[in-house]
Simulated assay, not measured.
Amino acid sequence: MPTVTVRVLGALSASVLSATLGVLAVAAPAQAAARDGACNTGEFCYYYNSDHAGSVSDHAGSLADYGSTQPGCYEFKGAGGGKGQCIKNNAASAWNRTGKTVRVYYNTGYNGSHAYQDFAPGAKKNLSSTLKNNNASHQLISAGSSYPAKDDYPYKGQTSGIDPWNFYKGQCTSFAAWAVRSRVGVAFHNQYKGQARWGNAKEWVAAAGRAGVPVYNSPKAGDVAVRLGGTYGHVAFVTRVNANGTFEIDEYNYVSADRYSHRTVSVGTANNQFSKFIRFK
């Protein structure tokens, strides 16, 4: 009887061990599939080189800190240049195959105070000149999520001359163009989508219509808000939409000449309101 008992226990142990090994054998491929160096549906992927060349690093969710040294950092896993290198401050392009907007941050911890770039669902493009090889975290965000209020305009204090997007420096149009380019990730300029010019602020709605860029009557974070009244009109960047229907904007050349301001405003046609919203993405 003792011998039988030992054999039964041995069989049970072998069975348990076999089951455990079976679980481990299944778990390992599942982890590999999560990050296998291929950009699969549902993933956000970095590429080591511009134009989606070189090794790939694929991710199914947000990451607040990639790590910066081996072992322990998130690395490029696919074949090609850069394979095995840490992805922090090493990516040049990205492809968003998730169903949400993905925001890439210059700093760890989803800190966008210096710079960030949004990738809409399906977007496949190079990182901006600021974010290229300066990517430290990324986050999946819901549509319409807020943008940090900040004065990141590169020509603050300048009141004359033309910016690289062909608007006058210090004006609301120049700042709005900068915000669309740096925050939304759309390469907007005064001749965007073949227009002779987008012109003064009050002309942007008509220009958007000709260019096929959608215009709405209610705001979403990331929109350009347009006031049609006045000699030149006014444009601002929508940073947040509040539950009570008001929304917040970053702007230039309104509260003070050629200077930044952040306000909470509402939809309407008064001088301190906005009635149209251009949605570049």
Rank of each mutant, 00 (worst) to 15 (best):
N89Q: 10
S15G: 15
V226W: 00
A92Q: 09
G212Y: 04
K169W: 07
T264E: 09
I162T: 15
V16M: 14
G37N: 09
G22N: 13
A19V: 15
L140F: 04
E75D: 05
C86W: 08
K77I: 14
H189F: 09
Y116M: 08
V213R: 00
A211S: 09
G212W: 02
R103W: 04
G222D: 02
K100M: 12
S218T: 15
Y147V: 01
R183M: 13
Q171L: 14
A64S: 14
Y153T: 08
S57Y: 00
T173W: 03
N200Q: 12
D223S: 03
A14F: 15
G157R: 09
F280I: 10
P148D: 10
K88I: 14
Y254T: 12
D151Q: 08
A201K: 01
A225K: 00
T246E: 09
Y116V: 00
Y110E: 06
T101E: 05
Q31R: 12
F280D: 08
A136H: 08
H138W: 04
H262M: 01
Y153G: 04
Q139R: 09
C172H: 03
A60G: 08
G157Q: 11
S93I: 14
N253Y: 05
S261W: 04
P121R: 09
R227Y: 10
A236E: 01
Y105T: 03
T98I: 12
C172G: 05
A177W: 02
K169P: 04
Q117I: 06
W204L: 06
G144Q: 05
A207C: 03
R35P: 02
S275W: 03
K220T: 13
N134T: 08
G194D: 00
A19D: 11
V56Q: 02
A53Y: 00
G99S: 15
R279D: 07
N135G: 05
G81K: 11
Q158R: 12
Y260G: 02
H189L: 01
A33R: 10
S128C: 09
Y168Q: 14
N90D: 13
Q158N: 13
G194H: 00
S174A: 15
Y254F: 14
V23W: 15
W204P: 01
Y116Q: 05
A201P: 01
T130A: 11
D118W: 01
S129N: 12
R227S: 05
G233Q: 04
A123S: 13
A225R: 00
G268D: 05
H138D: 07
N244D: 15
G209V: 02
P219G: 02
L63K: 02
M1N: 13
N90T: 13
H234T: 09
Q171F: 12
A30G: 03
G37K: 05
W165S: 10
Y252I: 10
I87P: 01
T20V: 15
T239K: 04
A208K: 00
Q139P: 00
S68Q: 11
I278F: 02
G67E: 01
A196E: 07
S128E: 06
S93Y: 13
N271K: 06
D118T: 05
N244K: 07
Y106C: 04
L21D: 10
N166G: 08
